[in-house]
């Protein structure tokens, strides 16, 4: 009985060749798969960034009222504006304070004196020849208060100049908005471009709100009521925000191949929710 161990030379060579071939195929597949996954992940990140940009633009800028001073300065990749941080309803007022209903407040954070300011709706006075308008007032303090009917309130301390805002033009239930002056702009940090946010009244440094973007990843264009491009903040009723993002520079794979990167852009057309119909422009 013959028991043979081992392989012939031909078998060994064939096995080695096959092993190398299959191994190379598997390595190639692995690297290709890795590149595909990295590409997909990058693409998802880009799309997520752009979607966030659309939401950000919609929330931060849709409520700006044209011609009211809500837009303060415009640039191609920079915007200074009133960022709305609260809405409340007054229950009583005097020259140094407005008390709002505690149970009916809207906002994204607590209101801060100095950082936030007020916009009070003045109903206008036909005898005095004044029109309904939002009158800006400083917020000098926030404290607990009580409404005339005994319900809990919040005292928004301010300074009302009767010559500018006669108290008869403030009526029960008048809405009060709170805002802080903000700046949004494209800036570079640690090698990447970001859409940054900075509170002009709250101080502090610019903080990234969205990104990373490309070097031209945030562009703004503005239009007036007729749809004509404008750079005058008082005339703007609509704007176009363009966001561009791309995946980080892909790694070079062995044998010099470079997987494809991904870049995309999103154009957001914003018409102020508080404006009338806007022309499409020329």
């Amino acid at each position: 009985m013959l028991t043979r161990h081992g392989f012939t030379l031909v078998e060994a060579v064939v096995a080695a060749v096959l092993t190398v071939f299959v191994g190379a195929l598997l390595v190639s597949l692995l690297l290709r798969g890795q590149a595909v996954i990295a590409f997909e992940r990058g693409r998802m990140e880009v799309q997520r960034t752009l979607r966030s940009g659309a939401l950000f633009a919609s929330y931060e800028w849709s409520g700006l009222t044209p011609g009211s001073g809500d837009l303060m300065a415009l640039g191609r990749s920079r915007l200074q504006y009133r960022g709305f941080r609260g809405l409340a309803a007054s229950c009583t007022w005097r020259t140094d304070a407005i008390i709002v209903r505690y149970d009916l407040r809207y906002g994204v954070r607590a209101w801060v004196a100095g950082r936030d300011s007020l916009l009070v709706y003045a109903v206008g006075d036909s005898v005095a020849g004044t029109s309904p308008r939002w009158e800006p007032l400083p917020l000098t303090g926030v404290a607990a208060g009580v409404c005339p009917d005994g319900s809990p309130g919040l005292t928004l301390q301010t300074i009302i100049d009767p010559a500018r805002l006669p108290l008869r033009e403030v009526v029960p239930g008048t809405p009060v908005r709170l805002f802080e002056s903000m700046e949004s702009r494209l800036y570079k940090s640690q090698g990447d471009w970001w859409l940054g946010l900075r509170s002009l009244t709250g101080g502090g440094s610019i903080q990234p709100a969205l990104g990373p973007l490309t070097a031209n990843g945030f562009e703004l264009r503005f239009r007036d009521q007729a749809g004509v491009p404008t750079t005058d903040p008082a005339l703007v009723v609509a704007m176009t925000a363009t966001f561009r993002a791309s995946t980080p520079r892909p790694a070079v794979l062995p044998w010099g191949r470079r997987p494809a990167g991904s870049s995309d852009s999103l154009v957001v057309e914003l018409v102020s929710r508080n404006a009338g119909p806007v022309g499409r422009g020329p």
């Binding site: 409520g63 009222t65 709305f84 809207y106 906002g107 994204v108 709706y121 029109s131 908005r177 508080n274």
Partner: peptide, 13 residues
């Protein structure tokens, strides 16, 4: 509507 008609999308406190 108010002048200007006022809209906001803030969450309730």
């Amino acid at each position: 509507p108010l002048t200007a008609p006022f809209w906001s999308g803030l969450p309730r406190v």
